[in-house]
Design a protein around this nucleic acid. Structure first.
Length: 484
RNA sequence: GGCCCCUUCGUCUAAUCGGUUAGGACACCAGCCUUUCAAGCUGACAACAGGGGUUCGAAUCCCCUAGGGGUCACCA
């Protein structure tokens, strides 16, 4: 152990989206590369918005991505006494004070400041209340918040590992609230207390927190703590350059999962958002990333995420995955589509494996993988419209398909080689190109104009289904002709 | 609006100390391969936000402008 300790501290007010996941990933890569400890902490002090099902999903997402942590999950909601104790200590040291200003008064002050176009800062009204004044408030039944006494002058400098030294004028920071009137801590305080008590050495989080950091440093200083190192990683923006939110479609890790993305692809893609190892390689496993990662190479610019590249990476991993692993990952998608049952016999499993092996090169997601596999399981597909027009309306199309069906009916054995040989001899005997035999056959037995090699499909489908489908297509062509 | 951060192809990014025809990837387009579709291969297109400095020389250093983002809650 290196003594390095990092934490990922999401608040369970929504699903883990790609931005949060990327922050978790960078924490993971950093801490694994230095041999430190990874803490998972759930920042759930906002009782109104926190939901336990989000916690479950969040943990599921982390596990699915393979971002394993060493400590936690800790829950801030179970540590409330710690924040209150810390606040009381600050009050006794005169570093914090109770404030009885009403929430309404503050809101109107803020509002008038805004209409007058000046910045509102809490003026420190309750900084020096006398005992009598306090008693009057208490008698009136007023609830107090606790505010940190902050310096009016000087600067607070945040030393950021990625951005260098960033200075903030203390005159721009007011006595902010650390304990709310309901007794719960605010984020800026709870987070600092926890980071201190958990001995977090490095705080890696999204850039949106940079502006909060001087407040947190002030808290830490008041508590007599050493400052951790900070690294604010660039944000991930939606394609319209705005902050990620629900309306931008799939941004949650769980959504990518249900759409059939592989965790390796998502990890690989996220790692390259805001970071690059410098070379020209782009395909990395989690272990590769750990060995190559360094905070110094994280860049400062917000990245817009673009699912095209993710899709490309996903198709790469679908192609390169270990076949058994891919089959396991794909099974839920085949089940959901109603192609296979939950329990598979050995031959069924074997067949699924062969199907996936033949179609894997053509799918960008596992949803697509199941989709391009349907005709291996179903007979009730429609014929592709363009293909129908092109191949089924030709003179003698039905007859040709019956000829092919007849030729295949007696073929023994029935495999890739024999069917291919049969088609070539058929093409010679009938004096037509192999292509004009293959195209209608493909349409007849799959309903599609593209896909894996025809003879591969026929071999997998077997003689019976191939012949039956050719005859059915011939009947379909005849039937339609009869209508005219 | 105040404060803070940022600015290289459409997107993700590379370019040790300032010296490169500004590199790669995705997407797009074209060609090759092929029974089709993919994959693969080859090629094309495409960027230093703008303006001033400093310098023999700036994407790189400095200043200004513009643009984008974040943050200013008894949310986190």
């Amino acid at each position: 152990m290196s003594g390095i300790k990092v934490r990922f501290a999401p608040s369970p007010t929504g699903e883990l989206h790609i931005g949060g996941a990327r922050t978790a990933l960078f924490n993971y890569l950093y801490v694994r590369s230095v041999g430190g400890t990874f803490v998972l902490r759930i920042d759930d002090t906002d009782l109104e918005r926190s939901r336990s099902d989000y916690i479950d999903k969040l943990i599921a997402s982390m596990r699915w991505l393979g971002l394993n942590w060493d400590e936690g999950p800790y829950y801030q909601s179970k540590r409330l006494h710690k924040y209150n104790r810390a606040a009381e200590k600050l009050i006794s040291e005169k570093k914090a004070y109770h404030c009885y200003c009403s929430i309404e008064d503050l809101a109107t002050d803020r509002e008038t400041a805004r209409t007058e176009n000046r910045t509102y800062l809490y003026p420190g009204t309750c900084r020096n209340l006398t005992l009598e004044e306090v008693n009057i408030f208490i008698k009136a039944g007023k609830k107090a918040v606790t505010r940190l006494l902050t310096p009016d002058q000087g600067v607070t400098v945040v030393k950021d590992e990625i951005r260098g030294a960033v200075s903030f004028e203390n005159s721009g920071i007011d006595d902010f609230i650390i304990i709310k009137s309901n007794g719960l801590p605010t984020y800026n305080f709870a987070s600092v207390v926890d980071d201190l008590q958990m001995e977090i050495t490095d705080i890696i989080r999204a850039e949106e927190h940079l502006s909060n950091t001087p407040r947190q440093q002030l808290c830490a200083l008041a508590l007599g703590s050493r400052l951790p190192r900070f690294a604010h990683v660039p944000m991930i923006l939606a394609p319209d350059r705005s902050k990620l939110s629900k309306r931008h479609g799939a941004t949650a890790v769980e959504e990518f999962r249900t759409e059939g993305f592989l965790p390796e692809a998502l990890i690989n893609y996220m790692a390259l958002l805001g970071w690059s190892p410098g070379g020209e390689e782009e395909l990395f496993s989690l272990a590769d990333l750990v060995s190559k990662f360094s905070l110094q190479k994280v860049n400062k610019t917000a990245a817009i995420y673009d699912t095209d590249k993710l899709a490309w990476m996903n198709s790469h991993y679908i192609r390169e995955y270990n076949l058994d692993k891919l089959v396991e990952a794909a099974r839920p998608f085949f089940e959901k589509k109603g192609l296979i049952d939950n329990e598979l016999t050995v031959p069924e499993c074997d067949y699924l494996k062969k199907v996936i092996a033949t179609v894997r090169e053509r799918a960008k997601t596992m949803l697509e993988l199941a989709d391009v596999s349907t005709y291996f399981y179903r007979d009730n597909y429609d014929y592709d419209e363009k293909g129908d027009k092109k191949h089924f309306t030709k003179e003698g199309a039905a007859e040709l398909m019956r000829t092919m069906a007849e030729a295949l009916r007696k073929l023994e054995p029935f495999d890739m080689e024999t069917t291919e040989m049969k088609y070539h001899s058929l093409s010679e005997n009938l004096e037509i190109s192999a292509g004009s035999l293959i195209a209608p056959t493909r349409l007849a037995i799959t309903g599609r104009t593209g896909g894996p090699g025809l003879f591969e499909i026929m071999a997998l489908l077997g003689r019976e289904r191939t012949v039956e489908r050719l005859e059915r297509a011939a009947a379909y062509v005849d039937h339609r002709l009869a209508l005219f």
